[in-house]
Write a protein that binds this DNA or RNA. Structure first.
Lengths: 106, 106
DNA sequence: TATATGTGCAACTATTTGGTTTCACAAAGT
DNA sequence: ACTTTGTGAAACCAAATAGTTGCACATATA
């Protein structure tokens, strides 16, 4: 039952949770209020997100606030890096082409 | 059976396939050679990736070359944007703090 | 034409997933 | 002390997932 970040963000509800608590830490009940499914279902999502360290807990009395570990999100960014290189090089190629056409016009 | 990009990249084999064909288009058999699982299993992954338009087919005789649609990968980048703002703003805050400390020293 | 090759699809299976209901337990309020 | 509130964990369930094997079919090659 090992989970990675990519599996964690695969579920739309979990992505919504991440976006929700990105701005401010929230309790499970507060989070669950934003969704159709039960608090327990949300709680399971929180557990999965916690397991892969995308979110962290902050206990305050009997309430637990979950907050996003935005640094962890960078791992997705790092993975994207290899493809960013490709699509950026395509832009450069396009730029070069446009430049050539422009010069040819002269 | 609707799939989105995030679900598509959730599977490690599919991420490996994406990375593999990012550099050059490949046939299913050539791709399958890189993995433990059967050609049919790889073929199913290719189908899923095709369905959400992360890859495209190019027929050449009886061979089909699959190539990455790198533009589609940008959708992940776009989703990340909202979090990038947060982690960049943290850097700015840190910069500001360091600047304050530096000025205080003077 | 007969055979080999490259590929997709259907059927079946074990495992994983996301959800629900029920329970346990600690902290706060009465 | 009793009740309410906030939470996690266990048991169970339907659906989805990733894999396999077997088959069909078109395109090359002998």
């Amino acid at each position: 039952m090992r989970r990675d970040i990519f599996q964690a963000i695969a579920d739309p509800t979990r992505r919504a949770i991440i976006a929700l608590i990105a701005l401010q830490a929230m309790t499970p009940n507060a989070i669950a209020d934003h969704f159709e499914s039960s608090r327990q279902a949300v709680s399971k999502h929180l557990k999965i997100l916690t397991e892969c360290e995308l979110i962290k807990q902050e206990q305050k009395g009997r309430e637990i606030f979950y907050k996003l570990e935005v640094e962890k999100m960078k791992e997705i960014d790092i993975w994207l890096e290899q493809f960013r290189k490709i699509w950026e090089s395509r832009f450069e190629q396009l730029d070069a082409l446009l430049l050539t056409l422009k010069n040819a016009k002269k």
